[in-house]
Amino acid sequence: MTIIPVSGGAFAAYDVVVGRGLLAQAGTHIAPLARGRTVIVTDETVAGIHAEALTVSLTAAGVRSEIVAVPAGEGSKSFAELERVLDRLLEIGLDRKDVVIALGGGVVGDLAGLAAALFMRGIDFVQIPTTLLAQVDSSVGGKTAIDTPRGKNLVGAFHQPRLVLADIDVLATLPERQVRSGWAEVLKHGLICDAAFFDWLAGEGAAGATGDPAALERAVIRSVEIKSAVVGEDEKEAGRRALLNLGHTFGHAVETEVGFDEGALAHGEAVALGCCMAFRYAAREGLCSAQDVARVEAVVAAAGLPTRLAQAGSFAADRLLTLMAGDKKAEGGALTLILAHGIGQAFVAKGVDASKVRAFLIEEGATA
């Protein structure tokens, strides 16, 4: 078991616990935080696999719990489901001393976290991420949000969890595609600021992309260490935290255009594609080498992830550009992109020329 502290001047410190068998020990970890009741927010798929083990552990530790389940999938990150979850918390009679537990992937973590942020102006919540993507990314850092037809994660709040329990054993229940999707976020962390980590992921660590537990544990630990350091320095994305969005400006636009259809394009697949596009755009502008681009593409492809826009479908350049201009990082309508000078050397590029991005998108295969 590894404990990674997350701390910053603007929020209360908390621990991310990474290890095996943590779901069975969850009650012991959560009991000191739960002065009253807990409500487990989960999705219908995860509820059938992991909810019983969690409730048994909580009961054994003397913690009362109830379950609120939402439909599985990105569609639950909506105003309708947020309202339904909040109404259930009120119906159950939760108060400000109680705790919400998010048991699931990124969708559940975002939805439950936002509900906890809004309920009675904010109550404590605990993240128990059950997907690789959530363990290495969305469960850490306090970003909570829902989607709108105009874009992904555009309505939300910063609300840090009190605790994150990342149980490597639960990843064994994931379909291969979900493991690969999470692996995209792992690769992203290496691309941002740790070339040596990326080297390991491209070599011995590549076994994690196919579910090897030892490789997954090391990958989760290092990814959380990287994200923890960035979040502690810049909780609300005023500066360096924006680097964690490498691949997301391109990727979110594509996700929005396919209607957040996980069957067509999973979030991690969009991030992998977006990272490749960001590196290609950087090379087009003379900011990084063609050799780095080729290496990134090769490692992403070897993990079974998309590298080219055509693999996600057919898109219009102007539509993608409009969606990118509505990205949360945009300022005054001007594009902000996360680019790189090389592997492990990401940077924030503000005021990017939209006409150059449009030309690039057409080169990538989008229609004019």
Rank of each mutant, 00 (worst) to 15 (best):
A115Q: 12
D167I: 06
L132D: 00
D147G: 07
A202T: 09
T131P: 03
A172Q: 15
K188T: 12
V108K: 08
V170G: 02
L132S: 02
V170L: 07
E225F: 08
A238H: 15
V155Q: 03
Q135T: 04
G113C: 00
L187S: 06
W200H: 15
N153A: 03
E225L: 08
V224K: 00
V136F: 04
E217N: 04
G205E: 04
G142E: 00
D167N: 10
C193P: 00
V155L: 12
R177H: 13
I168Y: 01
L171D: 02
P175A: 15
P175Q: 15
K188I: 14
I128P: 00
G232Y: 10
I168P: 01
A214F: 01
T130N: 07
A202N: 13
L132Q: 00
D147K: 05
A214R: 14
P213G: 09
K188A: 12
P161A: 04
S138N: 10
I123M: 11
V231Q: 05
W200R: 13
P149N: 12
T131L: 03
A166C: 13
I128N: 05
V107C: 11
K236L: 07
L244D: 06
G142S: 01
G182D: 04
A134R: 02
V170P: 01
M120I: 14
A172G: 13
L201Y: 13
G203A: 15
W200K: 12
A115H: 13
D194E: 15
S228R: 12
P213I: 08
L216H: 01
V136E: 00
A206Q: 14
I168H: 06
E204A: 15
E237H: 06
E237Y: 09
L111M: 10
D110A: 07
H159G: 04
E225N: 10
Q127D: 01
L191Y: 14
G156C: 02
E225P: 05
S181Q: 10
L243R: 14
A215D: 01
V155M: 09
V231R: 07
G203K: 15
A117Y: 12
